[in-house]
Design a protein around this nucleic acid. Sequence first.
DNA 1: TTGTACGCGTTATCAG
DNA 2: CTGATAACGCGTACAA
Lengths: 332, 332
Amino acid sequence: MATIHDVARKARVSVMTVSRVLNRPDKVSSKTARKIKMVMEELGYQPSQVARSLVKRRTNTIGIVMPDIKNTFFNSWFRAVEDSARQFGYTTLLCNTDENPDDEMKLVRTFLSHRVDGILIVPHSEESVKYLMRAKVNIVLVDRVFKSLEVDFVSTDHYDGAVKLTEYVIGLGHRRIGVLKGPGILFPDRERYRGFCHAMSANGIEVTREHVRNCEFKESIAYETVREMLQAKSAPTALFSFNSLMTIGAIKAANSLALKIPDDISLVCYDEIPGNDIFTPGITHILQPIDELGKNAVRILVRRIEDPNRKLKDGIYLKPELVIRESCRTMT
Amino acid sequence: MATIHDVARKARVSVMTVSRVLNRPDKVSSKTARKIKMVMEELGYQPSQVARSLVKRRTNTIGIVMPDIKNTFFNSWFRAVEDSARQFGYTTLLCNTDENPDDEMKLVRTFLSHRVDGILIVPHSEESVKYLMRAKVNIVLVDRVFKSLEVDFVSTDHYDGAVKLTEYVIGLGHRRIGVLKGPGILFPDRERYRGFCHAMSANGIEVTREHVRNCEFKESIAYETVREMLQAKSAPTALFSFNSLMTIGAIKAANSLALKIPDDISLVCYDEIPGNDIFTPGITHILQPIDELGKNAVRILVRRIEDPNRKLKDGIYLKPELVIRESCRTMT
DNA sequence: TTGTACGCGTTATCAG
DNA sequence: CTGATAACGCGTACAA
C-alpha cells in the first residue's frame, strides 16, 4: 500500500505538503493540491490510521463490549451505537463476553492494547470496570450500573419499568403474580425486582416466596420453573418475566402444558421478544428506549474523549415504555 | 498509559529486553524476565498494538462489512465470525452498509486506512469489491458472490435450497405457487429464483408471470404485494418468500385478510424469521449453515492473510437444510 | 506557500 | 543473554 512518501515523490513535493492537503487544505496552493490529489487517486493512497494514531495518540476507534450480539436488545443497541459513532468519526470494535468475567477482562485488555479512544461496556463484572478506571480509559457503562463507582453511565429506569408493568397487571385484577427473575447480581435485575415489590406492597399485595423464582436468565431454567409453578395448587394467574430468554422459556412451558395465553395464564415481560410484532398473542412488555440508549452512550463517551479531565460524571436513566398487547386477561 | 520505555527504565534494562520478554521469552534470563514482568504489572503496562502494527505491518484486526446487524441472519453470522476471529488472535471492526453502495465504499475505505489485515464483506456493489481487489487487500466475499471476479468467497448453495423448498411445496400438491423475490440484482436472489424455476419446470409446472413478484426485500412492499395476490381470482395456494423481511410482510398481509396459515394459504421461506421456534404456526423454511458460513469465512481469510500470494482462490458453497414446520397444507 | 528535523512506541538487525 | 540504532508512516514544530 502506497505511503505518503510515494505520493510526495510522484507529485514532486515534500511529504509535508501532501500531509497538509489532508489536514490543512487551506495552507496549500490549490494548484499543487490538485496535483497531489490526482497522484493520491492514481496510487490508491489511503493515509495510515495506524501511523497517524501513533503520533496523535488517538485512534478514532471505540471498543464495544457486550454479552451477546445475537440478543435482539444488544444488536439493536449496537446498531444505534455504530450509526452515531460513525457520525462522530469513530470506527467500532466489537466483541462478545457471554457474561463471562474472564473473557470480559481479556477483551478489555485487548481493546486497551489497541488503544481505543474509549470503551462502551455492558459489564458483567465490577472488576473489568475498575481495571478500566485505574487505566484511566474513557468509559461509559451501559445498562448495568455500579453505583459505588464514579463513572459515566447510561441506563434505563428499570425500577420505573417494573412498577409500570406490575401495576398494569395488578390493575387487571391479578393478585397471584409469579416473577421470573435473575440471581440478583446485576443492577437491572435488582432494580426490576425492587420495582415489582414496591408496586405490590403499594397495592397491599404480599410478595410470596413461592412465586418469586431465580431463573438465571436462561430459557431452559425458566421453562422448568414455569412448568412447575403452573402445575402447583396455588399457581399464579400472571407471570412477570424479567428477560427475553426467560420469556421464551415461559411461553414454551405454557405451550407444553397446553395452557393458552392469555386465557389460562397471563404473561408480561421486560424487553420485546423476537417476532412479537408478527405473532399472536403479542406479549405485553416494557420497551426500553434502545436507540436513545445507544445515541446517548456515544454522545457521552465522545464528550469524555474530547475532555478527559471533565470533572462531572454523567449518569442518566432513560424512561422505558409500557407496550400493551394481548397477553393478559382481566380477572373479574 | 505506560510505554515500553517506562518499563525499561524502571526495571533498569533496555527496551529491547522488555520487548523480548513479550515476544521471545526464551531469549531472556528468567531472572530479569521476572523482574520485568513485575514492573509491567505495577505500571499496568499494555503493549501498544498501534506501534507494533506500524513496524510489523499487521494490525491483528479484520473488518466486517455487512448490511445490517439487526438482521438475525447477520448477527448470528457475525457471532460465529467474532468467535473464530478471536481464536485466531484477531479483533473485529464492524460496520453496517444498509445495502447502500456509497456507504459501503466509504466504510471499505475507512477499514483500509485502519490497515485491517483483511476484510469479510457481504457486498452489495461490485464496485467496492473491485476497489478492494485493486488495493490488494485480503478479502473474502460472503453470501453474495460475483462469479466474474477472482476472489475467495463463502456462500450457501441457494439454488439447491430453493429447489428443495419448491419441490417440497410441489410434493404437497400445490401448483399455483407465488414467489416473493428481489429485483434480481444480488446473487442469492438470482440463484434462488433459478432453483425455483428449475424445480417448477422439472415437475412440468409453468411459472406464470403474475405469480412472480419483485418485493425489493422490503416488508412493506411484500405486504402490499401479497394482499393483492391473495385477493386475485387465481390466487396462489402457496407462497415462497425469498427473505425474512418479505416473509414478515406476507404473514401480516395474510393476517390482515383474516387468512389462516396454513389453512387458507401455505407459506415457505428462505431463512428463519425471528420467533419462529416460539410461535405457531412455525414457518417451513430453508436454514442456512450460519455458523459454518462464519467459521469458514474466517478460516479462509486467515489463510490468505498468512499467505497473501496463494494462487488458488477458495470458493465454497455450503448446503442449506430444509426445516419442515406447520405452515403448509396438503392439496388434495 | 513549502520544506527539515524530530518524535510517537515497537520490533529487527547487528554487535557486544 | 543484552543493548544500541535504525526503521515503520505520519504530524508538528520551526525554518526558509
